[in-house]
């Protein structure tokens, strides 16, 4: 840290300005994510939207057009006269909710399985590796389609269907960490002192998985949000009363020639979110990940 400060002091002003600019640029993803989180949490309190209520007098309005009720549809309306901006706000909530739940479920399950298999090795480890081989033979989205499509439509089913494959990367990464940590001196020391295996796992091995798991969680969050939107786009998983970006994009497909904004804008919102998480995930992986992922 000190080295980099002294180095930047002797650098010419142009370079310094450039690194300062880059530092600001690297913070943009945080700002974008904060906005999405704020919209997801507070948006529905400020914006009123009922997906079942239709307003045929105001259908297919352009962004910025005036509603017959006197308001303004800032991002236009869809084929049933429903406001696109409100759909973006409520869709953000759905995406964030499903994304966070799925990542939490799969991180907990994956870490528990991975750490246990990596620490104890033996037959447990073999079973895990073969189980992962089997799951990896299915494209993740296909497995999610089959699982989500087989059950009643609900948020819980979608979370379950997405977690069915999302836990794998957590298990792999934490298994690797546990494999290397179990050979370290303090684990040996604890073992010799007669510390129970459960406590060794929790106190001496588990903490070392935190960094990689956080880095992975951001990347998985992006994948999960994309997969959820994909499922909703295909009309599988979420009940029709839920608002989802994927669903709005699918609804807009038939009006593409006349109303591009119905499909276009939710896709932009989704892409911006995924790009931001991707950049953030890369930063986190560079900081915590790779070195310990072996």
């Amino acid at each position: 840290m000190t080295a980099s400060i002294t180095a930047s002091a002797v650098r010419p002003a142009v370079v310094r300005r450039r690194t300062a600019a880059r530092r600001w640029l690297s913070r943009i993803p945080y700002a974008v994510l904060a906005i999405y989180a704020a919209v997801a949490v507070a948006g529905p309190l400020l914006v009123d939207y009922n997906p079942i209520q239709t307003d045929l007098a105001n259908r297919l309005l352009k962004p910025g057009a005036h509603l017959s009720s006197g308001g303004t549809a800032w991002l236009g309306t869809d084929g049933l006269g429903r406001d696109i901006f409100a759909q973006l706000v409520y869709g953000a909530r759905t995406s964030v909710l499903i994304g966070v739940s799925t990542v939490v479920v799969s991180a907990v399950v994956g870490t528990a399985i991975g750490v246990t298999a990596g620490y104890f090795r033996g037959w447990l480890d073999t079973v895990l590796s073969r189980g992962i081989d089997i799951l990896l033979a299915f494209p993740a989205i296909l497995l999610a389609i089959v699982i989500a499509g087989s059950f009643e439509r609900s948020v819980v089913v979608v979370v379950g269907a997405l977690s069915a494959t999302a836990w794998i990367s957590f298990a792999r990464v934490t298994r690797g960490t546990a494999l290397s940590v179990r050979e370290r001196a303090w684990v040996d020391a604890a073992r010799v002192l007669g510390v129970k295996r459960r406590f060794i796992l929790i106190r001496h091995v588990l903490p070392f998985t935190a960094g990689p798991v956080v880095a992975l969680a951001t990347l998985e969050f992006a994948l999960v949000v994309l997969a959820e939107a994909g499922l909703s786009f295909l009309g599988i998983g979420l009940p029709p009363s839920a608002v989802s970006w994927g669903q709005t994009i699918a609804n807009g497909k038939q009006y593409l020639a006349t109303a591009w904004w119905i499909s276009g804008l939710p896709g932009l919102a989704l892409s911006l979110l995924i790009v931001s998480i991707g950049i953030l995930g890369d930063q986190l992986t560079a900081r915590f990940g790779r070195g310990q992922l072996r």
Binding site: A222, L226, A229, G230, F233, G246, I249, A250, G252, K253, L256, A257, W260, S263, G264, P266, G267, L270, S271, I274, V275, G278, I279, D282
Partner: peptide, 22 residues
């Protein structure tokens, strides 16, 4: 490439339809 990997395919597909077909 970061952008390309982030865009949902179903959306890029629809946008390509919008541009090249419509």
């Amino acid at each position: 490439t970061i952008a390309l990997q982030s865009f949902p395919t179903f959306w890029t597909g629809i946008m390509l339809i919008l541009i090249f077909a419509l």
